[in-house]
Amino acid sequence: MPEPTTPRLAELRRQFGARLRDLRQGHGLSQEQLGEMAEVDRKTINRIENGMYSPHLDKVFQIADALSVPPRDLFEWDGASSRT
């Protein structure tokens, strides 16, 4: 996947990935375990967590379901609601 076109997109991807990592670790799951539960490749989970991949909405729903959280929880981090 090509690099984000703006620094803002790169930062949002990074923050989304960090939030996913926090939720995954909070559930005591490895990337591989979450991937299996969400029917998403472990490498995809890794790329999302590292801000290198922007998942499609269907994948966001699958990951949220696997973590038993509402999808919006994946988008809640400090400063997520502020627009610069």
Score class of each variant (00 low, 15 high):
3 E>G: 10
4 P>D: 14
4 P>F: 05
5 T>A: 15
7 P>S: 14
7 P>M: 13
8 R>D: 11
9 L>G: 13
9 L>I: 12
10 A>Y: 01
11 E>N: 12
12 L>E: 09
12 L>K: 10
13 R>W: 03
14 R>F: 09
15 Q>W: 04
16 F>M: 12
16 F>T: 10
17 G>Q: 07
18 A>C: 09
18 A>K: 15
19 R>L: 10
19 R>G: 01
19 R>I: 07
19 R>P: 05
19 R>K: 11
20 L>D: 06
21 R>Q: 08
21 R>S: 12
22 D>Y: 01
23 L>F: 10
23 L>Y: 07
24 R>L: 06
24 R>N: 07
26 G>W: 04
26 G>P: 00
26 G>A: 06
29 L>R: 07
30 S>A: 03
31 Q>F: 00
32 E>N: 11
32 E>K: 05
33 Q>M: 09
34 L>W: 01
34 L>S: 04
34 L>I: 13
35 G>E: 04
35 G>R: 06
35 G>F: 13
38 A>D: 02
38 A>R: 01
38 A>N: 03
38 A>Y: 03
38 A>M: 00
39 E>S: 15
39 E>A: 09
39 E>C: 09
40 V>K: 01
40 V>L: 12
41 D>V: 02
42 R>D: 04
42 R>M: 06
42 R>P: 10
42 R>V: 12
44 T>P: 01
45 I>H: 02
47 R>L: 08
48 I>H: 06
48 I>P: 02
49 E>N: 01
49 E>Q: 08
50 N>R: 14
51 G>T: 14
51 G>R: 06
51 G>N: 05
51 G>S: 03
52 M>W: 14
53 Y>M: 03
55 P>I: 03
55 P>F: 05
56 H>I: 06
57 L>M: 10
57 L>K: 00
57 L>P: 04
57 L>D: 08
57 L>V: 15
57 L>E: 06
59 K>A: 07
59 K>W: 00
59 K>F: 03
61 F>W: 13
62 Q>M: 05
63 I>L: 07
64 A>Y: 06
65 D>W: 08
65 D>I: 10
66 A>P: 06
67 L>I: 06
68 S>M: 11
68 S>K: 15
68 S>Y: 11
68 S>H: 14
69 V>C: 05
69 V>W: 02
69 V>P: 00
69 V>H: 00
70 P>V: 14
71 P>W: 07
72 R>Y: 13
72 R>P: 00
73 D>C: 04
74 L>P: 01
76 E>V: 13
78 D>N: 06
78 D>H: 04
79 G>I: 11
80 A>P: 01
81 S>I: 14
81 S>R: 09
81 S>V: 15
81 S>A: 10
82 S>E: 15
83 R>F: 09
84 T>R: 13
